[in-house]
């Protein structure tokens, strides 16, 4: 086939009729070994408890980290924190798309849980978007049968 003809078909958007182009899906179910730190956090969620750990500078990090960001030493001093806290920052999503964690309007939020020094990312669902502000109080809404994943916290809700 002449190059000119291929170029013509390309311009006309017909080149795919000449050379096969097709979607294909590649998938594999991996395993995750979470280890003693992230594993502790996830196991806590299963019991509707939130654990952080204390860094070398005394700050409570939530979710817990395996190694101290300053000294690189393993962090083993676990601290249970509250499932309620304060919004540090937020981003309102007025029109959720299918990939979002909520079908109704929600806010991505950085939440500093009571007892924690580092804020954690999650989302808040509310029908009062004007109340989503830095400093607002929120509390976890747990699913009925937690399995040990971050989605065990269905979302956070604004405290009254």
């Amino acid at each position: 086939m002449s190059i000119l003809l291929v170029q013509f078909l390309r311009v006309e958007g017909l080149v795919e009729d000449l050379f096969l182009q097709k979607e294909y899906e590649l998938g594999f179910t991996y395993t995750r070994s979470t280890g003693p730190v992230v594993g502790k956090f996830l196991t806590g969620l299963k019991n509707k408890k939130i654990f952080g750990n204390r860094g070398s500078d005394g700050r409570v990090i939530v979710p817990p980290m395996e190694y101290d960001p300053e000294t690189f030493q393993p962090l083993n001093d676990f601290v249970q924190v509250s499932d309620a806290g304060m919004i540090e920052s937020w981003c309102w999503v007025a029109e959720p798309r299918p990939a979002h964690p909520s079908a109704v309007p929600f806010a991505w939020v950085m939440i500093k849980l009571d007892g924690a020094d580092i804020s954690m990312i999650h989302h808040v669902v509310t029908d009062e978007p004007s109340r989503v502000v830095t400093g607002a109080r929120v509390k976890a809404s747990w699913i009925d049968q937690p399995v040990g994943l971050i989605s065990d916290i269905r979302y956070f809700v604004l405290e009254k």
Binding site: S33, T34, G35, P36, V37, V38, G39, E66
Partner: peptide
């Protein structure tokens, strides 16, 4: 199988 550690724990 080193199910007792994460990838981070293994390299560490």
């Amino acid at each position: 199988r080193r199910g007792d550690v994460s990838i981070a724990g293994l390299v560490r």
